[in-house]
Nucleic acid binder design. Structure first.
Lengths: 201, 201
DNA sequence: GCCAAACTTGCACACAATGCAAACTTGCCC
DNA sequence: GGGCAAGTTTGCATTGTGTGCAAGTTTGGC
């Protein structure tokens, strides 16, 4: 069996079981069985059940953020992020992403796993930003900006997942939310405008 | 033994061992021994070694973000966050926070644990923001803003930890970095100013 | 058909985590 | 100061995780 095929078989089985029994509702043995491999082989591919379940997220983030290098160097960062993250994505993929994202509620393990994935995406973004911004930008700026951008993406994803709760994987929802949240970030969240003491005006 | 005292004994022992052998460099049995309790008792207090090691972070974040409720309702959010997060903190505590934060390098487990702690801090912040901003603010805004603020705090912490690497727990470093990164956030990171095509100017 | 490389498997082992019921400790009331 | 009740600790048993290792099995090229 091809290595890639095995990997797919495992993560597919993991997703299936997670749907049926909830993430964390089954053991590695069960999963290995369902995927048609031995327990040992499972561990050759994934270090934990959660890693297998979260693979769609990992692939999405990996794909998106490594496409960042291919963007023109003089493109404003925000546009580059929009282009890579918000790029073409099938209804299918979007649905899975939202689904897995939503499973976080039921499994702290899965939640941590996803947090880690987003975190390593942020690190990739920091690398990209460092290159783009050059010496002009301090470490602090790079980190805060990367973190904020990722936070916007997460917010967009979460909100998209919420609206898709009643089974409606709207593929554009994420894209629009992403656009909106990054717009907010761009304007400093109108921080100076909102929540001022009423007597100000 | 008082419950609180046991808790402290355990997390103190955990910190000590983590310093000596690295996080993840020892087993629960060792830790339980060092803390003077049984293995079973350890698990009555913490679900994992990492949770015990990361307790200082947890306490810091819990403390900071629950103080958020006590801030005047008409205070601008950013100021409130600065006041709660950047508030009084001893050299001692700062040093420990940086130390634990830095240990993430050596232990994915510990890294995930801390990510989760920051994440639940973000959720507290979201609740606070929802109250403060009222219906005027959509979910997306609240999430993106909370995420960005937390990202700034993390960036400040990380940068403070970096400068403290050569043993220099500078207590103000974090506060200043926090101030700076939130200033950046406020101005939308000058996104429209930096990294434009050179020919623009 | 054979060989080497790639891949899978079983086994053994150390450790994590939790339920349960039996101990032990503490403070307090009479 | 005996004894009760609540709070706390412990041992034991059990199930599951994750990894090294060495022996299998498959695959493709020659």
């Amino acid at each position: 069996m091809n290595k890639q095929a095995t990997r797919n078989a495992i993560s597919a089985a993991a997703l299936k079981l997670a749907r049926e029994q909830g993430p964390g509702g089954f053991t590695v043995d069960t999963l290995a069985d369902a995927a048609g491999v031995s327990r040992r082989t499972f561990f050759n591919y994934f270090p934990s059940i959660e890693a297998a379940v979260a693979r769609p997220i990992e692939e999405f983030l990996d794909g998106a953020f490594s496409r960042l290098d291919e963007r023109p160097a003089d493109e404003p960062i925000v546009d580059a992020v929009m282009a890579t993250l918000g790029g073409d994505m099938g209804r299918e993929q979007m649905a899975v992403l939202c689904e897995v994202y939503a499973m976080t509620e039921d499994s702290p393990q899965l939640e941590r796993m996803q947090l880690q994935l987003w975190n390593s995406a942020q690190q990739k973004l920091e690398d990209g930003l460092t290159v783009r911004l050059g010496a002009a930008a301090g470490e602090l700026l790079v980190r805060a900006l990367a973190g904020s951008l990722v936070a916007c993406a997460k917010a967009a994803m979460r909100t998209a997942a919420d609206s898709a709760a009643g089974r409606n994987p709207d593929p554009l929802s994420f894209h629009n939310h992403l656009l909106e949240s990054i717009g907010l970030l761009r304007s400093g969240f109108n921080i100076n405008g909102i929540n001022h003491d009423p007597k100000d005006s």
